[in-house]
Design a protein around this nucleic acid. Structure first.
Length: 282
DNA sequence: GTCCAGGATCGGG
DNA sequence: CCCGATCATGGA
């Protein structure tokens, strides 16, 4: 276990921000997630202090980067246009959210699934896919300040190889419906090396965008989500039905992302979280 | 039962 | 380039 003092960090808000589908709230002070083939629990131990159920090495090598802890969100907050009252409110409300750097393949498949579905429903499918083709992860025994994990075992998100091996019938049992062929092709392309995560990571925004939208079942919105949530391309601004509604209601249908050249995607996430959670949910 | 969901594809104008 | 129809299922 490690304890860290971190400001502008709120795992519960992150879990409810809709950017990741495998991070869950246990109670108001505890969250758990499966990523990078591991289980992690985070316990709030003070105003700005958190316990992570991992070693110092693991924290530095994996989670520091995963939770975007090297970025100064205080500075980002300060740079928000003072005249933009909606965005000011959204940022204050969502303060603590960070843009995760999730795994590329998992994010790609998850957002392919996401089209025309609700978040709870996406979560169910991602969970089922992991259960039928991901590696088992045994829940650790944790002591205070942690609590017992929700389940006794978890499943890593599958590798491209193992997902590509699923039959169409097996895939459809996960509830992905007509997106099954999209998923199958994406899995084959990552498995064969036609799409290579490390190569993609080296390319510029426009080239990466072209490569992603070139995939079967990946359009404008999903490509931007993949770029934002797994490639740390924080200038990308995915527009879904929620964001479009916000733009229509508060921005005359259009948001000028040029005001936030490197952080538009972070603004997007504040808006999305605020609009979805300020009244009720889902 | 009814409605809509973190959209994309396809064909046609 | 833009438009409309269509897509399979779950969850409320």
């Amino acid at each position: 276990m490690v304890i860290k003092q971190i400001s502008f960090f709120d795992p519960v808000k992150i879990a409810r921000s809709g950017q990741a589908f495998r991070i869950q709230v246990i109670d108001s002070d505890h969250t758990e997630l499966v990523a990078k083939g591991r289980y992690l629990q985070i316990a709030r131990t003070g105003e700005d202090t958190f316990a992570f159920s991992c070693s110092e090495d693991e924290f530095q090598n994996i989670w520091y980067n995963y939770f975007d802890l090297g970025r100064d969100y205080r500075e980002i907050s300060k740079r928000i246009d003072k005249k933009d009252k909606y965005l000011q409110r959204a940022e204050e409300y969502g303060r603590g959210i960070r843009i995760l750097k999730q795994e590329v393949f998992e994010t790609t498949i998850s957002y392919i699934i996401s089209q025309r579905r609700s978040i709870p429903s996406i979560t169910t499918s991602v969970e089922k896919i992991s259960r039928i083709s991901g590696k088992v992860i045994k829940a650790p025994k944790l002591k205070s300040p942690f609590v017992a994990p929700i389940h006794s075992e978890y499943y890593a998100f599958p590798s491209p190889d193992s997902l590509a091996r699923l039959s169409t019938e097996e895939l459809k049992e996960t509830g992905v419906g007509y997106r099954a062929p999209y998923i199958a092709e994406a899995a084959r392309d990552f498995a064969s090396g036609k799409l290579d995560e490390k190569e993609l990571a080296r390319t510029g925004d426009e080239e990466l965008y072209k490569a992603l939208t070139g995939m079967y079942g990946v359009g404008t919105k999903v490509a931007n989500c993949i770029m934002l949530f797994s490639f740390a391309r924080t200038s990308r601004f995915p527009i879904d039905v929620w964001i479009q509604r916000i733009l229509d209601n508060y921005y005359e249908g259009h948001f000028d992302t040029s005001s936030y050249p490197d952080t538009a995607g972070i603004m997007q996430q504040f808006m999305f979280y605020y609009e979805r959670t300020k009244d009720i949910h889902n």
